[in-house]
Design a protein around this nucleic acid. Structure first.
Lengths: 245, 245
DNA sequence: CGGCCCTTTGATTTGAGTCAATCGTGGTGG
DNA sequence: CCACCACGATTGACTCAAATCAAAGGGCCG
């Protein structure tokens, strides 16, 4: 099934976008495209980091187990994104598990090739540095969110991110088709499916959302944005009637 | 006051450790050492990232404000650590505020010098990449901790980290002098001073700690380590008598 | 000695997790 | 084609950890 892609399609985006011809062919020579079905594991936390992966199509979920047995969702990646580079660069086992959320095509770039490319192309190195730097910022952002924001605010933010096209969702007409189930959404928000469900339905009752098992329609993005604000602490309680004032 | 340091002392550690002579003198030429008093701001969140800083001595607190007005503690850095590199690399304003916790000496490396060094020394670039990659892992670790662990577990982990020499504490005899106040410890743990205080005193009652306003003595590190485990969910409730079973 | 700030302690509230039951949907086999 | 089953989603009731509000203590510095 996995026909030999040329990697040219990927070159339009991501950190490999502007490789000089020599390096580009080097990359194309050893990058191995691979098709995954939905819910397949690309690499697993704790295993040796043998390669960097570049998403060509589809959506990949990055998660991380805990000693306690449960998992935490670290992020979602889409086409053009590179995954596994951290472990490869730091020369440590993968710290996260990567798993497809839908049928995807992912290119595998062997560890040596990647390191070599980085060493020989200062520009690429700088670009990856930038990329990583931004990544740290994003994770820190998450940390702040988790610590200071209520579940309903974090949920609102997730919805906004989805609605704005970041994340595993696609606009089908006016509706936003979600490619993950409630549990995964809950994981992303950092809560339980039950609580997320309540929160979501509270928003429906306010007329901010339309909700379906696998699609969401944002009716009032402005209101959602207001809820996502740290200051707006109007509780958005579930099963709680209209808050008078 | 700030005598002209040669930067040679810093070269023994951190990412600049093994610079080739040429680059080393380039660095020494434009790195500007600066003494800070306790509680001084090195750079502030949101301001343009003009330089990278390398800590020569002292302790620096990295925090991040929220729209809501309160802050969150992102991390603590010690001698040899580099700060501000993320913003400089990503070419964005500083995302965090850096502030000394005690009198410190910090070298300022202008943005251009840093970028130039990185571009001309593939090895340095790779080392910084490694460094950043690890940093992302650490922040993610934090994220997991915040999400899955109880306050008493996170507090135990902080104590362990301090006791093991990571963080702003120094062994004075058998005691661990803490250079930050309760509020900052609370921020690090991701809780409030009140809750942290209760948690700490619960540990004292169990005979695991000795506690003083500014020093801590760990009497039973093994017990602390046990409490830090995700599974060990024996509540460690404050003001709660011996839990029978 | 007095005031101030940090810390501790107490009382109360509350957001969100947990446990458990029900519902709805989609898939399967008769 | 329809009854049934299984699984995810929802809803409800309850519990509990931790935040918040409020009020002392206690040490340090002027």
């Amino acid at each position: 099934m996995a026909a030999r892609f040329t990697c040219a399609g990927c070159n339009g985006r991501g950190v490999f976008a502007t490789l000089p011809p020599a390096q580009r062919s080097r990359l194309a020579g050893s990058a191995l495209p691979c098709s995954y079905r939905s819910r397949q594991t690309i690499f697993h936390e704790g295993t040796p980091s043998l390669a960097v992966h570049c998403i060509r199509s589809g959506t990949v979920k990055l998660s991380r187990g805990t000693a306690g047995g449960d998992e935490i969702l670290v992020g979602i990646r889409s086409p053009g994104d590179v995954i596994g580079h951290r472990a490869v660069l730091a020369d440590i086992p993968y710290g996260i598990t990567a798993e497809t959320l839908e049928p995807s095509v992912v290119c595998t770039i062997p560890r040596e090739t990647f390191i070599e490319l980085v060493l020989h192309d200062a520009d690429l190195a700088l670009r990856i540095l930038r990329h990583l730097a931004r990544e740290v910022c994003l994770v820190e952002e998450q940390l702040v969110e988790r610590t200071r924001l209520r579940v309903h605010q974090r949920a609102a933010r997730l919805l906004l991110r989805l609605a704005r096209g970041h994340g595993p969702a696609a606009w089908i007409g006016p509706r936003l088709e979600i490619t993950m189930n409630r549990e995964q959404m809950a994981l992303l928000v950092g809560t339980t499916p039950e609580t997320l469900s309540r929160t979501l339905h509270a928003l429906v009752e306010r007329g901010i959302l339309d909700l379906d098992r696998r699609a969401i329609r944002v009716r009032d993005e402005a209101a959602l944005a207001r809820l996502a604000e740290p200051r707006a602490s109007a509780p958005v309680r579930p099963t709680d009637g209209a808050t008078g004032s």
